[in-house]
Amino acid sequence: MSEDKNDSFLSRLKAAERRSGLKTEDDTKESADDKDGQSLATLALRAGTEMISALIVGVCIGWGLDKWLHTRAIFLIIFALLGGGAGVLNVWRLVKPPPV
């Protein structure tokens, strides 16, 4: 019985919203687009940080190894490249389609 009541309330609410022009079909579509744009900007920002942070870690490790082993720049070069690769991997994990 309470479910019935709830249903009738929801339908009445929907009708009232449509009457007062609060919620139209266009409105819902627009808000969905808005949400998409928001998440796209957030995604782009996240992808940037993921890429940079892997590179930072790679450069830090390479620089530290060079300093420790007194080899000039060989580990920095290797780990900067690996860090860049790890950055791309991070971004791929972020944007890859969900497993089917």
Binding site: L45, E50, I61, L82, G83, G85, A86, N90
Partner: peptide, 25 residues
């Protein structure tokens, strides 16, 4: 030899990206 270092670096980059995101914003 190529994949393992990249995976390790990717794992180690997590706290960096987590902190940079908040701080930069």
């Amino acid at each position: 030899p190529l994949l393992i270092p990249i995976e390790i670096l990717s794992f180690l980059s997590r706290p960096v990206s987590l902190s940079i995101r908040l701080f930069a914003n």
